Simulated assay, not measured.
Amino acid sequence: MIRMKSTRSFMFLICPIMVLIFLYYSSGRLHLRSPVQKSQYDKQGFLTKLDRKLPLELRYKYGNLSKGECKPGYTEAKMTSIYPKFSKPAPMFLDPNFKRLSKIISYPPPFGVRTQEKIIDHILQATKRYSLGSELDSISCKKCIIIGNGGILFNKSLGSQIDQYDVVVRLNEAPVAGFEKDVGSKTTMRITYPEGAIQKPERYEKSSLFVLSAFKPMDFKWLRLMVFNEKLRSMEGFWKSVARVVPREPEDIRILNPYFIQEAAFKFIGLPNNNGLMGRGNIPTLGTVAITMALHSCDEVAVAGFGYDMNTPHAPLHYYEKLIMSAIKESWTHNISKEKEFLRKLVKGGVIRDLTNGI
């Protein structure tokens, strides 16, 4: 009897201790798991496990739309689902209120407008228009496509498919005439910088927006000359020859919001900040800047002509010339491998669609 009592006393004593030990280790395990929860996002803030499946709330939102129908707000919703830090839409082009945009006012070019406010004011007073135009602005759901210049476009016969998009964005001097079967004939805007602009006036499309993406202060000076149709007297400050005339009326000229360069470089790709100044390997390519713009401005985004395959050194570099892949040299300004990593996240996460499967 005495033994049974002592056994019971022991059990009454040991049980609470066991419960406390269990709770201690359970809380410890939970504590150990919390870093694992955080690691579901990479350094830039993207989900590490990506797939094209729609989150449940988006399935309900877009489930009843017929195939091919534009999905309102889809790009922003999908981007936010794989990158929760995605900020609210930023203006596509600079307008007279650009000084209120705190994200760009403290950075000099290419990441902002500091020191360039007066010349931008002067340009905007002449252009007078700061959007895509009344026809496109009235479309409630916009499908956009960014056309890269890669040789992967050659002989793909995507022209008619490309022309079905509401907004077709082309880059630098990539030609359309003679390549319509592969790249289409429609151009909504051509984004460029002075050294990349078409130099022969006759090669410009009859109607499209000319959009400057400024990478240095000199680019704004060049644009002012083009807007006011003044003579360019010197090539000093440019790293190669530039266009001397842009055959566009001032109202067809825009300035791309430099926030897209900043966001692509520092937030999406994770390039070195370098105190907000242009430096080695911290400038995104124009194609990635254009895609970043589209993430803010379009309901659906597609790309074509992106991606360089260095495993095929004799493949064409661009769709419009005979240069081959091996002609690519290491870039001082770009980090191509890190940039490709970012673009792959967008494709794998279903944020953008890659028509040529080169990313």
Rank of each mutant, 00 (worst) to 15 (best):
residue 38 K to Y: 11
residue 32 L to Q: 15
residue 193 Y to T: 05
residue 354 D to H: 08
residue 63 G to T: 10
residue 72 P to G: 05
residue 83 Y to V: 02
residue 64 N to R: 10
residue 252 D to C: 02
residue 248 R to N: 09
residue 55 P to S: 07
residue 49 K to N: 13
residue 215 F to Y: 15
residue 314 H to V: 08
residue 263 E to W: 12
residue 160 S to C: 02
residue 322 K to T: 14
residue 157 S to G: 02
residue 23 L to V: 13
residue 351 V to T: 09
residue 214 A to R: 02
residue 258 P to S: 07
residue 104 I to A: 04
residue 260 F to G: 01
residue 188 T to R: 06
residue 105 I to C: 09
residue 342 F to Y: 15
residue 245 V to E: 12
residue 78 K to Y: 03
residue 190 R to Y: 06
residue 329 K to I: 06
residue 228 F to V: 00
residue 241 S to F: 05
residue 165 Y to A: 15
residue 93 F to K: 06
residue 273 N to P: 01
residue 163 D to H: 08
residue 83 Y to E: 05
residue 101 L to H: 12
residue 23 L to R: 07
residue 141 C to P: 05
residue 260 F to A: 02
residue 273 N to D: 14
residue 10 F to C: 10
residue 328 I to W: 09
residue 326 S to Q: 13
residue 216 K to M: 09
residue 203 R to V: 00
residue 73 G to F: 09
residue 345 K to T: 08
residue 214 A to Q: 10
residue 32 L to K: 15
residue 300 E to K: 02
residue 325 M to T: 15
residue 5 K to P: 00
residue 9 S to N: 14
residue 331 S to C: 08
residue 180 E to F: 05
residue 65 L to C: 03
residue 302 A to N: 05
residue 205 E to M: 13
residue 317 L to F: 11
residue 26 S to L: 15
residue 94 L to F: 10
residue 338 K to T: 01
residue 151 G to E: 06
residue 103 K to L: 11
residue 203 R to P: 00
residue 130 Y to W: 13
residue 51 D to Y: 09
residue 322 K to G: 10
residue 163 D to E: 08
residue 37 Q to H: 12
residue 131 S to Q: 01
residue 209 L to M: 02
residue 209 L to E: 03
residue 268 F to Q: 09
residue 15 C to G: 08
residue 307 G to D: 09
residue 29 R to D: 11
residue 185 S to V: 03
residue 225 L to M: 12
residue 23 L to F: 15
residue 44 Q to R: 13
residue 139 I to K: 15
residue 251 E to C: 02
residue 177 A to L: 12
residue 303 V to K: 02
residue 334 H to C: 05
residue 151 G to R: 05
residue 191 I to G: 02
residue 49 K to S: 13
residue 98 F to G: 04
residue 317 L to H: 07
residue 67 K to E: 13
residue 204 Y to F: 15
residue 278 M to L: 15
residue 85 K to I: 03
residue 282 N to D: 07
residue 169 V to S: 06
residue 90 A to H: 15
residue 316 P to V: 03
residue 164 Q to L: 12
residue 91 P to C: 09
residue 200 K to Q: 14
residue 51 D to V: 06
residue 336 I to R: 11
residue 339 E to K: 09
residue 149 N to K: 10
residue 320 Y to V: 07
residue 341 E to D: 14
residue 116 Q to C: 14
residue 76 E to K: 14
residue 112 G to K: 04
residue 230 E to F: 00
residue 266 F to W: 15
residue 126 A to I: 09
residue 72 P to Y: 07
residue 38 K to F: 10
residue 282 N to P: 07
residue 68 G to H: 09
residue 215 F to D: 04
residue 170 R to Y: 04
residue 83 Y to R: 04
residue 306 F to A: 03
residue 52 R to M: 11
residue 68 G to E: 08
residue 109 P to M: 14
residue 219 D to W: 07
residue 51 D to P: 05
residue 282 N to F: 06
residue 241 S to G: 06
residue 28 G to W: 13
residue 215 F to A: 04
residue 254 R to Y: 07
residue 124 L to V: 08
residue 304 A to W: 07
residue 358 G to Q: 08
residue 139 I to W: 04
residue 166 D to R: 08
residue 306 F to W: 12
residue 30 L to M: 14
residue 319 Y to C: 04
residue 251 E to Y: 12
residue 32 L to S: 14
residue 356 T to C: 12
residue 174 A to K: 06
residue 231 K to A: 12
residue 99 K to T: 14
residue 311 N to C: 01
residue 195 E to H: 02
residue 64 N to G: 01
residue 216 K to C: 01
residue 338 K to E: 14
residue 145 I to S: 05
residue 296 H to N: 15
residue 263 E to K: 11
residue 275 N to L: 13
residue 208 S to R: 04
residue 236 E to Q: 12
